[in-house]
């Protein structure tokens, strides 16, 4: 019941935000927060719940972005048509990457995902068909509404809000299913989970593929809003890092963690960019580094974990001692 009230409040704020704070800057900021919240929530499925810290998620982001722009630039179709294609490619790629890399544990998995992402960026940078270093552009002038090319950020805002709601709903549904339980078990002890019949490799792979699908959608939406994609904005490692930090800052493995993280980091970045102009780009990295250190040192569970209640055990059967 209490959860429901909180949920309604958050939903009401999210719906009312662009109407209350209606300057173009504020609306754009809101849309960006939601966009990154989608990507970070998608990452959360495999990085948070399953504990497989992917630092190469931009690969899937890029699949979506390139598929959306490609469907316009190569075939003259609405970028919208590229979305299913992007999802299919991302999921397929996740399967190919996941089978060998998900066997790796801890940092080795993270490093493998970085390697894959950087390789992909270099391949795309050198592929003329994908626009090489210049990238691909979307429709400059919208031909019709299906091009999803708007001057105002308002339509994007609500589009992103709907997609985020869908992402969070599916994540929530997953965490309450057997798969979600298995993922949490695998995160704590893969060996024990397997001994109890949890098919660890398969479960992790499914989570990775599901995560890739939503990340791909986030990439497509990003490309549609900005109207273009190039290797840096679609496949750069900074995007992987951003997504990861947002989820970790808000609370990895918590449903609303990534949204909280995005709501803090995106405005911070936008403000620092507008203050420092082009010179601020390098500082963003410094900021992210500092945040990683702070989270790791003081609140490994993320900010939202401050609010999760700690239930005290009833220690009256003799089976429980303080460890």
């Amino acid at each position: 019941m209490r959860r429901l009230i909180w949920l309604s409040v958050v939903a009401a704020i999210a719906i009312a935000y662009p109407l209350l704070l209606s300057s173009p800057f504020q609306q754009r900021l809101g849309a960006l927060v939601l966009l990154y919240a989608i990507a970070a929530s998608a990452w959360n499925i495999v990085g948070g719940y399953a504990g497989q810290v992917s630092v190469g998620h931009v690969v899937f982001f890029g699949c979506g972005a390139y598929a959306a722009m490609g469907s316009y630039a190569k075939f003259g179709l609405s970028p919208l048509f590229g979305v299913p294609g992007g999802i299919v490619i991302a999921v397929g790629l996740a399967a190919i990457i996941g089978v060998p890399t998900l066997r790796l544990s801890g940092h080795y998995f993270s490093m493998a995902t970085i390697a894959v992402a950087e390789t992909m960026r270099l391949i795309v940078t050198n592929t003329d068909w994908l626009g090489a270093a210049v990238g691909l552009s979307g429709p400059t002038v919208p031909r019709n509404i299906f091009d999803l090319s708007f001057l105002s950020s308002l339509p994007y805002y609500y589009l992103f809000l709907v997609i985020l709601a869908v992402t969070l709903f599916i994540t929530w549904w997953m965490t309450n299913s057997r798969m979600g339980f298995y993922l949490r078990a695998i995160k704590d002890s893969e060996r024990a989970a397997r001994s109890l019949g949890a098919p660890a490799s398969r479960t992790k792979l499914y989570a990775y593929m599901l995560s890739a699908a939503f990340t791909s959608v986030a990439g497509a939406l990003y490309a549609m809003m900005f109207g273009f994609v190039d290797p840096e904005s679609g496949l750069g490692i900074l995007i992987s890092v951003k997504i990861l930090i947002m989820a970790a800052l808000g609370g990895a493995g918590l449903l609303f963690g990534p949204l909280v993280g995005a709501a803090i980091l995106v405005p911070l970045e936008e403000i620092s960019n507008s203050w420092l102009g082009g010179r601020g780009a390098g500082l963003t990295f410094v900021l992210y580094g500092a945040i990683i250190v702070l989270i790791a040192r003081f609140q490994p569970g993320g900010l939202l974990s401050l609010f999760t209640r700690r239930r005290k055990p009833t220690s009256d059967t003799g089976a429980s001692h303080a460890p």
Binding site: R310, T317, A319
Partner: peptide, 29 residues
């Protein structure tokens, strides 16, 4: 004999509780 601890966080258990929980989990399969 652990039903009163059902909703306690597992990390709050001591060694005897953990050993028993291991057996409970295995029995559930």
């Amino acid at each position: 004999g652990m039903s009163r601890l059902a909703d306690a966080p597992a990390r709050s258990l001591g060694t005897p509780g953990r050993k028993r929980l291991e057996i409970a989990r295995a029995l559930a399969t």
